[in-house]
Amino acid sequence: MPERNQAALDFLLSRRSRPAKTLSAPAPGRDELATILTAAARTPDHGKLEPWRFIVLERGALDRLAVLAKERGRALGKDDVDTGKAVSQFADSPLAVVVVESPVDSPKIPPLEQTYSAGAVGLSLLNAALAAGWGANWLTGWAAHDRAFVTEGLGLAPHERVTAIVHIGTEGSAPPDRPRPDLERKVTWLSA
């Protein structure tokens, strides 16, 4: 039998994101965040291309992005509700880490596998923050997919895109668990 890491398995079986609106300061400092980012970077990466990168959004950057979200919402004709959600995502967050998909030209590794690796980094980042005892939530929203917002606000190159924005802070209140997938409907067993 393989050696079982029961603590890790228990964490994964009970993990749950914390709603971003329940997160407040303090957030992890740079040293603690470095540990979380190191854990996140230990992710599946076919070809060792590292087709992703991190952008850490501290208070000043979050305030600047909240203003930009309001400007872009108006420019795009978004209603007040959609614009307000994007603004508050940045204005109310104590800290956020953007996972950027940054594909690498490769004759062997298809772009889709690089996208999957960037997604795996997002989930690893979320889980590492939760395992470290912080509240965390993965959000994106329309601003994360608006080319002008990500170019001006985050400095993304034309070939890059936002995979995840993981908000990290101190959890204010624990939410109730939500319904989980019915594995009877989601699993197919093939034995021959």
Rank of each mutant, 00 (worst) to 15 (best):
P2I: 06
P2Q: 09
R4L: 14
N5I: 12
N5M: 11
Q6F: 10
A7G: 06
A8M: 15
L9Q: 14
L9H: 12
F11T: 05
L13W: 13
S14Q: 15
S14H: 15
P19Q: 11
P19H: 12
A20C: 08
S24D: 09
A25M: 09
P26N: 05
E32N: 08
E32M: 10
A34F: 07
L37Y: 05
A39Y: 00
A41L: 05
R42C: 06
T43A: 15
D45R: 05
D45W: 03
D45A: 03
H46R: 13
H46L: 12
K48W: 05
I55W: 03
V56R: 00
G60K: 11
L62R: 07
R64F: 04
R64H: 08
L65W: 04
V67C: 06
L68I: 06
L68S: 02
K70L: 06
E71G: 03
R74F: 08
A75N: 09
L76V: 02
G77H: 06
K78I: 01
D79I: 01
D80I: 04
D82I: 00
D82E: 15
G84W: 02
G84H: 01
G84F: 02
A86G: 11
A86E: 02
F90V: 07
V97N: 09
V98G: 10
E101L: 04
S102A: 15
V104N: 05
D105Y: 12
P107W: 14
I109P: 06
L112R: 06
L112Q: 08
Y116H: 13
A118Y: 10
A118C: 13
G119M: 11
G119N: 12
G122N: 11
N127M: 15
G133I: 13
G133N: 07
G135Q: 09
N137I: 00
L139C: 01
T140V: 03
G141F: 01
G141M: 03
W142R: 00
H145P: 01
H145G: 00
D146N: 09
R147T: 12
A148F: 04
F149S: 02
V150R: 03
L154M: 06
P158T: 08
P158I: 07
R161W: 06
V162A: 04
A164F: 01
V166Q: 10
I168H: 05
G169E: 08
G169F: 10
T170N: 08
E171Y: 00
G172L: 01
S173V: 14
S173D: 07
A174Q: 10
D177C: 08
R178H: 06
R180F: 07
L183D: 03
E184S: 14
E184Q: 14
K186F: 10
W189I: 14
W189D: 02
L190F: 15
S191F: 14
A192W: 15
